[in-house]
């Protein structure tokens, strides 16, 4: 207390000076229109620039939340597009039907999940997501990120799931050249997280370097038309009736953060039919 008093006494002149200057400035800005306006304009400019700098810094802290909300809205929009495409395809098959069309129930739904563990350097790569059986995830569901296909759900826990990455040997994905019906099989063979191979493309297929490879829609994991990559080059194939394409993968597997798991409402029915087919064989 004594030290505080000594300090106040020692610098009393400056305190008195600051007090009178402050009172004068308050009077000046409060009761003089011109000076008040100039002060407000300058103060606004300073406040504006300070706020701008602050928001530039704090904006980075909110990017994760913003990204998650964008992913969720993107998923909802993609879901709508897929269901509308489904509906349009169905409507095309109805020719002059007098029965009133009631619409199709939506087939695909998305669940947004965060990648919590990832590997890209092994022969068989997996990553783990933070959604599981409790969120409606089941083995065999396709997983995509904002750029394209990234894997298929392999094992499910209650709140986490393991996903087989596209970067896995012996895990084929049914794909096709976009805009055509030339279907092939996507396979990853080498230790390169950016490229893979599309095998069994018919020899008569027409394509160009840079063409997009998309999912064929022949599996219940992925709807048709989800990007997988772009054609880099053609490589020789052992079978003279088919050729193999080297593909640059759309997704960056080294930086997977948020993904979406695709839920197909027809999957149980289609799986049952496939099992029935196998029994007959």
């Amino acid at each position: 207390m004594r030290n505080l008093l000594n300090f106040l006494m020692k610098y009393s002149t400056w305190f008195v000076f600051a007090f009178y200057v402050l009172v004068s400035l308050i009077l000046l800005f409060s009761f003089n229109t011109y000076q008040g306006a100039v002060y407000l304009t300058s103060a606004n400019a300073v406040t504006g620039s300070v706020n701008e700098a602050t928001s530039e810094i704090t904006g980075y802290f909110n990017l994760r939340k913003i990204n998650e909300s964008l992913q969720a809205s993107n998923a909802a929009l993609e879901n709508k597009v897929l269901n509308l495409t489904n509906e349009i395809n169905h409507l095309k098959t109805l020719v002059d039907d007098s029965v009133r069309y009631a619409g199709l129930p939506p087939r695909f739904d998305y669940v947004t999940a965060a990648v919590i563990n990832n590997s890209t350097r092994r022969p068989r790569n997996y990553f783990t997501i933070n959604k599981g059986r409790a969120d409606g995830i089941a083995p065999g569901m396709g997983v995509v990120d904002q750029n394209g296909v990234v894997g298929i759900v392999n094992v499910c826990g209650n709140h986490t799931s393991r996903v087989i990455s596209v970067l896995t040997k012996d895990q084929p994905f049914s794909v096709k050249i976009k805009g055509t019906q030339f279907v092939g099989s996507l396979a990853w063979k080498e230790n390169d997280a950016q490229s893979a191979w599309v095998e069994e493309i018919p020899r008569h297929a027409r394509y160009r370097i840079g063409d997009t490879i998309v999912t064929s829609g022949f599996s219940t994991a992925f709807p048709e038309g989800i990007p997988v990559g772009t054609v880099m080059a053609q490589v020789k194939s052992g079978d003279s009736n088919f050729f193999t394409l080297k593909v640059h993968l759309s997704s960056d597997f080294n930086h997977l953060s948020t993904v979406r798991v695709i839920k197909d409402s027809l999957k149980p029915e289609l799986d049952m039919l496939q099992r029935f087919d196998r029994k007959e064989e």
Binding site: T13, Y20, V23, S24, L25, L27, L28, S30, N32
Partner: peptide, 23 residues
């Protein structure tokens, strides 16, 4: 400081320029 401030303030009050002469 106090007397100068008060003198300025008194002039301000009579001249309708609050704060100008006081400062």
């Amino acid at each position: 400081l106090t007397l100068s401030f008060l003198l300025g303030l008194a002039v301000d009050i009579c001249s309708d320029t609050p704060g100008l002469n006081a400062l």
